[in-house]
């Protein structure tokens, strides 16, 4: 593919966190992802855009092996996190997912208290040696999730009682609590109203200072607002990948242009 050369050019600015080569995904008989090559950079927001069913969510789920939980899905190709193949037989997906956290389309707080929701990850990974440390982690994560001020007085209230936007920020805080290095977000704002969306977008921008963030989104405006790099998927193919500004102002592939101008998708 001709975009390979451009990817090479970006390397000098930021370190490559996650390197994907010749990735294929099959759902039973369906070939859902075809020959995708992408490099996710550290401390960068990368957006995946494309019409529904183009495979962007599927590809995202490959990055922390969430597809393992689906029986019929098969993944091929090389995915290297800091140079290590995440599909290596010796890799425990559990460890991987602690490093590569995920936030889902629909806010899915556990039916527990706000505190327990955030403390869940640190507890299972054993990140805190005592209650005080755990409290600290919870507070820090909720602050990073930009929700601390709203919930600090009711940490014992159930997480399911929050509003949609608060729930999603809680889920982000929950994901942040395990100290991931990469944060995957699968259409995190699609179930939120515009105000909550703005809050989450602001949060994503702050998260960039610590993590490498990958976001799948339907909204091109959102991709333009929050991301530095953009990948356009179409029918399971990666059509174009590059600087967000360039993709939106000067796309190389006619399909990208059609999508951005609203003719397909």
């Amino acid at each position: 593919m001709n975009d390979m050369s451009r990817v090479e050019r970006q390397v000098d600015t930021n370190k490559i966190k996650l390197e994907c080569r010749d990735c294929q995904v099959y759902y039973g008989e369906t070939h859902a992802i075809k020959d995708v090559n992408v490099d996710i950079e550290d401390k960068t927001v990368t957006a995946f855009i494309g019409p529904s069913g183009c495979g962007k969510s599927t590809f995202l789920r490959c990055l922390n092996r969430m597809n393992d939980t689906i029986d019929v899905a098969r993944v091929k190709g090389s995915f290297k996190l800091d140079g290590e193949d995440i599909y290596d037989k010796r890799v425990d997906p559990v460890q991987l997912r602690a490093k590569v956290g995920m936030v889902f389309q629909k806010p899915n707080p556990f039916p527990k208290s706000i505190y327990d929701n955030v403390a869940y990850g640190p507890r299972i990974h054993g990140l805190a040696r005592n209650k005080a440390e755990l409290d600290e982690i919870v507070e820090k994560s909720l602050r990073r999730g930009a929700i601390w001020n709203e919930v600090k007085d009711r940490l014992d209230a159930p997480g399911t009682g929050l509003s949609g936007g608060q729930q999603q920020r809680l889920c982000i805080a929950r994901a942040v609590a395990t100290e991931p290095e990469v944060l995957l977000m699968d259409e995190p704002c699609s179930a939120l109203d515009p105000i909550a969306t703005a809050q989450v977008e602001e949060l994503i921008d702050e998260l960039r200072s610590r993590y490498s963030v990958v976001i799948v989104t339907h909204s091109m405006q959102q991709a333009a607002r929050v991301s530095q790099k953009t990948a356009f998927f179409h029918l399971g193919n990666l059509v174009e990948f590059g600087e967000t500004g360039q993709i939106f102002t000067n796309p190389e592939d006619p399909r990208t242009e059609s999508y951005i101008t609203g003719r397909i998708g």
Partner: peptide, 13 residues
């Protein structure tokens, strides 16, 4: 709901 399980797996449980 499966979302509940996904949330947990996504955190590395």
């Amino acid at each position: 709901p499966q979302a509940m399980r996904d949330g947990s797996y996504g955190l590395g449980a």
